[in-house]
Nucleic acid binder design. Structure first.
Lengths: 352, 352
DNA sequence: CTGAAAGCGCTAACAC
DNA sequence: GTGTTAGCGCTTTCAG
């Protein structure tokens, strides 16, 4: 009797309330079966009569009923959602605008969609990357993909130690407990520098903040190439330009003010290369005649720039796939290896 | 007795199983209280003893316990997650790469984070925008923000008719049931054209696919400005360039092949403007001397381009906020109004 | 102030 | 084949 009363109340409510969400019980009632049957039918179980299944499927479709995923996940203790976390710099309160990161985001969205996963996107303070654990602890996601390692190797290690399934876009470091996916920065830096050396440049400036692991590796490649050509490293040519806003402008100004001569420039991001080129132009340097420039990333706009930018391509489409695959194998097998994506030097007019 | 047995089993299990996720019952057991009390303590209810609350809070923190959001949402029938949908073009299987859309995505991420909402990002086939309803029907999100109206006004109207809370980035159209947020395209197009006219240009080409509502409105502004200056519209100057890849190149080629003279160009996106400028340069037109160019969007790279690009700025940061606010007022009050964001002409070297 | 019990929407033994 | 029942992790009446 209690049940009966409830049902009546429910019906009245649903009539008066604007629009209660349809649920399995409704479909069951309308189809004259139990919810179990509906559940089975909708999940394609063979345990249910073909005809019944068809009927239920049809009914659900026509009523535009969709199963409540959260309830399902709760019951099944599973989820097909992945967290993607993009750190932000708390000092500059920097917005998410770096074209390369944004590009990876797009690539991830595609890769996850292909694999049938949903993506929960969040931003967290770069100084507290360990907060990324929380989103996992709340149980809504299978694992975490973090775009941007910054200088917080230690925090990331702690996360991994806590068994948070996490994959990071960045550089592979010694003593690393977490899984990284990234481009081969050493080789990338080497290719860029090698290319400049081969076109006869001798005084190659390096723009980048070597505190960041990825940049440090590109710098290593830069040094390697110089060494191979028997050229001594001139520290004055190394400028710790940051990725922010006017990084290139400041770096170029620094070299000029200190009257340091240079005939080439390897910038650790395309954005940095572009702002540098603009500054060089203002100071009446010709690119590439006076200064040859190579960037890093190969963002879409690199080839539309003037002059078209020579740059080290990070394979963006592969990046998304690799990140997702690394994370999935981590959650499935419990372990997963770092992946190093090949880089490719895209030679364009800015360096030849 | 049954309860007791279960507890014992549980304990054994949790010891043997590698790492069961912590849950409220665990905290309760450890604190020697019931789950009700833990629930109250963690939600800051005044119904619980101050000392007890502190103790529980401390325990939860030290154990890094986070409440299971899905279970909570299920019980409370609420959620603080918003779906953000970015359509993809099924034909070109185009990836998510347009800098402006990517930028809006960043802006949305920031706005949602500020408001304490999570963002569920998905991509759907642009030909079936109505699939966006499904993600709402599954009950995981409060509402949907769709970036890109494309030519599917009708499908969007159907969604709204089904009472799916949805806000769309795009143009406001007559007979529109859904809420849009967008920039003032008519005025934007007018400003761009007006600017070119005032610098003495007479033959202004228009690049853009007027099948898209936003572009159609920019075109309307273009026509208005021409009319105000008593200049007859020359249809030959209107080229239906698409936003894809080599749009600018094709459009420029078309004008040149047909030997149509022009001294200015209004392109409906910065990307289009940039590729057009590159093509013009290849054909030995000087920008702005021979052809003045104005773009649309003011993506970050516009000011780093050479020549720096004059463009109609769509306020990206505001865009995210406006979209979120529009959606929230829709879900709260049940209705919400379209928002038209002001545009601003950024005059740079490509046009003067 | 605290605990016992019911139930959010769904699935999976277990019965029939 | 199908229905009944218990329970996923949480919140909230309702008693005490």
């Amino acid at each position: 009797m209690k049940a009966k009363t409830d049902t009546t109340t429910d019906t009245i409510k649903s009539a008066s309330k604007e629009q209660r969400r349809l649920q399995m019980a409704d479909i069951a009632r309308l189809a004259g079966v139990s919810t179990s049957t509906v559940s089975r039918a909708l999940s394609g179980s063979t345990l249910v009569n073909d005809e019944t299944r068809q009927r239920i499927a049809e009914l659900a479709r026509s009523l535009k009923y969709s199963i409540n995923i959260d309830a399902r996940n709760l019951r099944l203790k599973q989820t097909r959602t992945i967290a993607v976390v993009v750190p932000f710099d708390s000092e500059t309160r920097q917005h998410l605008s770096d074209p390369f990161f944004l590009g990876i985001l797009g690539s991830l969205a595609d890769a996850l969609t292909d694999r049938g996963f949903d993506m929960l996107l969040s931003r967290i303070d770069a100084e507290h990357l360990d907060n990324a654990a929380q989103i996992f602890d709340t149980g809504r996601v299978l694992g975490v993909i973090l775009i941007g390692q910054w200088r917080h190797h230690d925090q990331l290690n702690q996360l991994a130690a806590r068994h948070v399934p996490i994959v990071v876009w960045g550089a592979q470091l010694p003593q690393q407990l977490y899984v990284t996916v990234g481009s081969d920065n050493v080789t990338g830096g080497q290719k860029a520098t090698e290319h400049l050396l081969q076109s006869g440049r001798k005084r190659i400036a390096f723009f980048g903040d070597t505190q960041l692991p990825e940049v440090a590796q590109r710098y290593e490649g830069y040094c390697k190439a110089l060494a191979q050509h028997g050229i001594a490293l001139d520290e004055k040519l190394v400028v710790p330009a940051s990725f922010i806003e006017e990084g290139g402008k400041l770096a170029v100004a620094e070299l000029c003010n200190r009257k340091i001569s240079f005939d080439a420039l390897f910038a650790c991001s395309d954005l940095l290369a572009m702002t540098s080129i603009n500054s060089l132009r203002e100071k009446n340097y010709r690119v590439p005649d006076d200064v040859a420039v190579v960037g890093y990333d190969d963002i879409e706009l690199a080839r539309y720039f003037h002059p078209p930018l020579t740059t080290v391509r990070q394979p963006m489409a592969q990046a998304g796939l690799a990140l997702v695959d690394a994370l999935l194998s981590l959650t499935e097998d419990g372990n997963s290896e770092a992946r190093l994506l090949p880089t490719e030097l895209m030679v364009r007019a800015s360096s030849v």
